[in-house]
Amino acid sequence: MRARRPRPDLPDAGEDRARPAKPRDPQEERDALLAYAFRALGQRALSAAELRTRLERRSENPDLIEEVLKRVQELGYQNDEQVARSEGNRRGVGTMRVRQTLKRRGVQDDLIQEVVLARDPDREHAEVLTLLERRWSSLARKRDPQASAFAFLARRGYTGNVIWPALREFMADRPVEEPDDEPDWEGEE
């Protein structure tokens, strides 16, 4: 096999083969960042902190990031109150999960507290009963179904103050199943 000669028209392996990016003027950079913000907000409602983090990955200019963030807020495309309220209205998750999710998403503490206090305890109670009804067939097969139900609901963010009364109410409607000591063999004597 013959050795290959290096080709003079190709750069060496150590050199970057990509063309250097054409420097953008400030207006082009602003427009590109604004277009990215609209695309990101079109996919999912983002909190201001989440959008700021995404914009920081695209630009190193903090003034430009702040300008773009203010602009999308002025136009009504980004609003932390809407993000918090939609998270607070989610079904199938408890107050603790809502609080944890909003905190992780960077929503301010006073807004989190407002959303958590606005949640209806009767609605949570009804949601827990619905979840128990839907999942009871699989939970009933566990060694301790009530403990399994409690753990399942706690993982969904419901507090013990909501879980226990709903579990007691749900179990009161269930027939008491007593374990049989002897199998029921019909026809044998």
Rank of each mutant, 00 (worst) to 15 (best):
P175I: 05
P165Q: 00
L34R: 00
D109K: 11
A118Y: 15
W185G: 03
E169N: 11
Q82L: 15
Q113I: 12
V83I: 11
P165G: 09
D181G: 15
A154K: 14
D12F: 00
A151S: 12
A166P: 08
V98A: 14
A13I: 14
K70H: 15
L139S: 03
E66V: 10
E87I: 15
I163W: 03
Q73H: 11
R58I: 03
R44I: 09
D80Q: 05
E133S: 13
D31H: 11
E29K: 01
L129H: 07
Q78D: 04
V93G: 11
R2S: 12
P8T: 13
E182D: 14
V68S: 06
R168Q: 06
E186G: 10
N61F: 07
A154V: 10
A154P: 14
I163H: 02
R97H: 09
P8H: 09
R19G: 03
P183L: 15
R19A: 07
F150W: 09
R57Y: 06
D173A: 15
Q113V: 15
K22T: 05
V72G: 03
V176S: 12
E188W: 11
D173S: 13
L139R: 00
Y158G: 01
E133C: 07
E56Y: 08
P62W: 00
L153G: 07
L153S: 05
G94N: 02
L139G: 04
R155G: 14
E189V: 14
P23D: 03
E127V: 11
A3W: 00
A151G: 04
R90D: 06
A118H: 02
Y36N: 06
L69Y: 06
S47I: 10
Q73G: 14
A149I: 02
I112V: 11
R97W: 05
G92Q: 00
V98H: 08
T159S: 13
Q108V: 14
R19P: 02
E81S: 09
Q43Y: 03
F38H: 13
G14T: 03
L153P: 04
R104C: 00
A40Q: 01
Q78M: 14
R58Y: 08
L111P: 03
L75H: 00
G157Y: 02
Q82N: 14
E60V: 05
D109L: 02
V83E: 01
A149E: 02
Q113E: 07
R57E: 06
L111F: 12
D173L: 09
R168C: 04
P26E: 09
F38A: 10
D63N: 04
E56W: 06
P20Y: 05
A166N: 08
E74Y: 10
A32K: 13
E127K: 08
E60L: 13
A45L: 10
E177I: 15
L132Q: 01
L132P: 02
N161V: 10
Q82D: 09
V93A: 00
L117I: 04
R123K: 05
A149S: 07
R141N: 12
L64C: 01
F38Y: 07
